[in-house]
């Protein structure tokens, strides 16, 4: 490895709480709890986890759709304060987002041409006369013909809509795109088309992706670095090659063995973990301990910090050191 490039985006200590009203009582849910991430230019950081782990909230904090209760965002060496409109505008030009649901994320009464032109006019990037040409260029770079500009979203297929979403996101020539489950709502035969498009755009435009997903096989295919989140915390962070070869956290391990492999010769015999994610079930110690097959007394006493076990590989587990040896895994998990 050469000297690491300076990060494009550095988020440190992000925290977000929501108040929930249920049955008259007000509960506080910490959706994102002290999360720090770093994005390298031109690379993909994948955030993996199940619903309720805080990955979508993290995406909204990074794109400034929501304001963090605590923590700091530094983009390209400059701390981001969202107080002024002009600064927010400048930030949103560099950081764009692609949403999960291509049916819901395109304004239904806009034609495709207006949808793609919108970021150009918000950021005053093209004169009125140049807009049409620029829109056609952007559409062609996501594999759509110019004739599609006159259509409404409901006249397009799911894959075409997601291409339009991506076209809107790249219109401002951003440097970072936050992708929140960008292919999971699409049909299987269309998914790989969109994945290929995202890979092409990354290579051609030097984009960084913050890629939110629950699909480990997909993450394995596209990510440079993987972060696993559980109940608002990052529990493991590692380069993709390291992570998929030898995950250290018991939850990462459970996620991996729960993902259904499309190969009948490799059937899982038993589910890797029992129970479900319960926000607020655990107030002290490790949040995963009620489902963890390897929990010991220590796990109930203190919350394990996210510590390095190898260069670039961080794990929040009291037993991370022991788990580096395979013997324990095979003995306890099979």
């Amino acid at each position: 490895m050469s000297t690491p490039a300076p990060p494009l985006l550095q988020a440190s200590g992000l925290r977000k709480r929501y108040r929930l009203r249920s049955a008259g009582a007000v509960r506080q849910i910490t959706a994102v709890d002290d999360v720090s991430i770093q994005l390298v230019p031109g690379q993909t950081l994948a955030i993996v986890g199940e619903s309720g782990c805080g990955k979508s909230t993290l995406a909204k904090l990074v794109t400034q759709l929501e304001t963090a209760d605590a923590g700091e965002l530094v983009f390209d060496g400059r701390p981001i304060s969202i107080r002024s409109r002009s600064e927010r505008l400048r930030f949103s030009r560099d950081v764009q987002m692609v949403f999960q649901d291509p049916y819901g994320s395109l304004t239904p009464h806009f034609r495709v041409g207006s949808l793609v032109a919108e970021p150009l006019s918000v950021h005053r990037l093209a004169s009125a006369t140049a807009v049409r040409k620029r829109v056609a260029e952007i559409l062609s770079s996501v594999g759509l013909g110019p004739e599609i500009a006159g259509r409404f979203p409901h006249e397009l297929s799911g894959g075409q809509r997601q291409r339009v979403s991506i076209a809107r996101a790249i219109a401002t020539r951003p440097r970072l795109i936050v992708c929140d489950e960008p292919v999971s709502a699409l049909d299987v035969s269309v998914r790989s088309q969109i994945v290929n498009l995202l890979l092409d755009l990354q290579r051609d435009l030097g984009l960084s992706y913050l890629f939110i997903s629950h699909d480990l096989a997909l993450v394995d295919h596209i990510a440079d670095t993987v972060c696993v989140m559980y109940l608002g915390r990052i529990v493991e962070q590692a380069p993709a090659a390291v992570f998929f070869a030898a995950p250290r956290h018991p939850y990462s391990r459970a996620l991996m063995s729960s993902s259904p492999v499309p190969d009948p010769r490799r059937r899982n015999n038993a589910p890797a973990v029992q129970g479900e994610v319960e926000a607020g079930a655990i107030s002290t110690g490790c949040r995963f301990r009620n489902r963890c097959p390897l929990a010991v007394d220590r796990c109930a006493q203190s919350d394990p910090p996210l510590d390095p076990v190898a260069p670039g590989h961080l794990v929040a587990c009291h037993r991370a050191e022991e788990l580096g040896t395979r013997a324990l895994w095979t003995a306890q998990l099979g």
Binding site: S189, S192, Q193, I222
Partner: peptide, 26 residues
């Protein structure tokens, strides 16, 4: 065959390479 081939299989060799895909739509 197209569906099966288009599934990402992971692994270092294939990382970030194009996935085989079925062109067009249903």
């Amino acid at each position: 065959r197209g569906l099966l081939d288009s599934l990402p299989r992971g692994g270092n060799a294939a990382r970030k390479s194009h996935l085989p895909s079925i062109e067009g739509t249903v």
